[in-house]
Amino acid sequence: MEVRTIKVFTTVDNINLHTQVVDMSMTYGQQFGPTYLDGADVTKIKPHNSHEGKTFYVLPNDDTLRVEAFEYYHTTDPSFLGRYMSALNHTKKWKYPQVNGLTSIKWADNNCYLATALLTLQQIELKFNPPALQDAYYRARAGEAANFCALILAYCNKTVGELGDVRETMSYLFQHANLDSCKRVLNVVCKTCGQQQTTLKGVEAVMYMGTLSYEQFKKGVQIPCTCGKQATKYLVQQESPFVMMSAPPAQYELKHGTFTCASEYTGNYQCGHYKHITSKETLYCIDGALLTKSSEYKGPITDVFYKENSYTTTIK
Rank of each mutant, 00 (worst) to 15 (best):
Val3Thr: 11
Val3Pro: 12
Thr5Pro: 14
Thr5Leu: 12
Ile6Gly: 07
Lys7Trp: 10
Phe9Gly: 08
Thr10Pro: 06
Thr10Met: 06
Thr11Phe: 05
Thr11Lys: 05
Val12Trp: 07
Asp13Arg: 04
Ile15Ser: 08
Asn16Leu: 09
Leu17Pro: 06
Val21Gly: 10
Val21Arg: 14
Val22Ala: 15
Val22Asp: 05
Val22Gln: 05
Ser25Thr: 09
Ser25His: 10
Met26Lys: 08
Thr27Met: 07
Tyr28Trp: 07
Gln31His: 06
Gly33Ser: 05
Pro34Met: 06
Pro34Thr: 12
Pro34Asp: 09
Tyr36Gly: 05
Leu37Glu: 10
Leu37Ala: 12
Asp38Gln: 14
Asp38Thr: 11
Asp41Thr: 12
Val42Gln: 12
Thr43Pro: 05
Thr43Ser: 13
Thr43Leu: 07
Lys44Trp: 15
Lys46Tyr: 14
Pro47Gly: 09
Pro47Thr: 05
Glu52Arg: 12
Lys54Gln: 14
Thr55Asp: 05
Phe56Asp: 05
Tyr57Lys: 05
Tyr57Arg: 06
Asp62Leu: 11
Asp62Gly: 11
Asp63Lys: 09
Asp63Gln: 11
Thr64Glu: 15
Ala69Cys: 15
Tyr72Lys: 10
Tyr72Trp: 08
Pro78Arg: 15
Leu81Trp: 07
Gly82Arg: 11
Ser86Glu: 15
Ser86Lys: 12
Leu88Met: 10
His90Asn: 07
Thr91Met: 04
Lys92Thr: 12
Lys92Val: 11
Lys93Gly: 10
Trp94Asp: 05
Trp94Arg: 03
Trp94Tyr: 04
Pro97Phe: 07
Gln98Asp: 07
Gln98Pro: 06
Gln98Glu: 11
Gly101Arg: 06
Leu102Thr: 06
Thr103Gln: 05
Ile105Thr: 03
Ala108Asn: 07
Cys112Phe: 03
Cys112Trp: 03
Ala115Phe: 05
Thr116Cys: 13
Leu118Trp: 05
Leu118Cys: 04
Leu119Tyr: 04
Leu121Pro: 03
Leu121Asn: 03
Gln122Arg: 02
Gln123Glu: 08
Gln123Arg: 01
Gln123Cys: 06
Glu125Thr: 13
Lys127Arg: 13
Asn129Tyr: 09
Pro130Thr: 12
Pro131Asn: 04
Gln134Trp: 05
Asp135Trp: 09
Asp135Ser: 12
Asp135His: 10
Tyr137Gly: 04
Arg139Phe: 08
Ala140Ser: 08
Ala140Leu: 11
Arg141Ser: 11
Arg141Ala: 11
Arg141His: 09
Gly143Phe: 01
Glu144Asn: 13
Phe148Ala: 04
Leu151Ile: 05
Leu153Trp: 04
Tyr155Trp: 02
Cys156Gly: 06
Val160Glu: 02
Val160Gln: 01
Gly161Gln: 03
Val166Ile: 05
Arg167Trp: 03
Glu168Arg: 15
Thr169Arg: 03
Met170Ser: 02
Ser171Leu: 12
Tyr172Cys: 11
Leu173Trp: 01
Leu173Val: 15
Phe174Lys: 02
His176Gln: 13
Leu179Pro: 04
Asp180Trp: 08
Ser181His: 14
Ser181Gly: 09
Lys183Asp: 04
Arg184Pro: 01
Val185Asp: 04
Val185Pro: 01
Leu186Trp: 11
Leu186Asp: 06
Asn187Phe: 07
Cys190Ser: 01
Lys191Asn: 13
Thr192Ala: 10
Gln195Cys: 12
Gln195Lys: 11
Gln196Pro: 02
Gln196Asn: 14
Gln196Phe: 14
Gln197His: 07
Thr199Ser: 12
Thr199Lys: 08
Lys201Val: 09
Gly202Asn: 06
Gly202His: 05
Ala205Asp: 03
Met207His: 05
Tyr208Ala: 09
Thr211Phe: 07
Leu212Gln: 05
Leu212His: 04
Ser213Ile: 01
Tyr214Trp: 09
Tyr214Gln: 00
Gln216Leu: 10
Phe217Tyr: 06
Phe217Asp: 01
Lys219Ile: 11
Gly220Trp: 01
Val221Ser: 05
Val221Phe: 14
Ile223His: 10
Pro224Trp: 13
Thr226Ala: 13
Gly228Cys: 01
Gly228Leu: 02
Lys229Gln: 14
Lys229Ile: 12
Lys233His: 12
Glu239Asp: 09
Met244Ile: 05
Met245Val: 02
Met245Gln: 00
Ala247Arg: 03
Pro249Val: 06
Gln251Pro: 15
Gln251Thr: 08
Glu253Trp: 07
Leu254Met: 03
Gly257Arg: 06
Phe259Gln: 00
Cys261Gly: 00
Ser263Pro: 02
Ser263Cys: 10
Thr266Asn: 07
Gln270Thr: 09
Gln270Ile: 13
Gln270His: 14
Gly272Asn: 00
His273Gln: 02
Lys275Trp: 02
Lys275Asp: 00
His276Asp: 02
Ser279Arg: 01
Ser279Trp: 03
Lys280Tyr: 08
Glu281Val: 03
Tyr284Gly: 05
Cys285Asn: 05
Asp287Val: 00
Ala289Glu: 11
Leu291Arg: 06
Lys293Phe: 09
Gly299Glu: 01
Gly299Met: 01
Asp303Ser: 04
Phe305Trp: 14
Tyr306Val: 00
Tyr306His: 00
Lys307His: 15
Glu308Trp: 06
Glu308Lys: 06
Ser310Ile: 07
Thr312Val: 15
Thr314Cys: 05
Lys316Tyr: 14
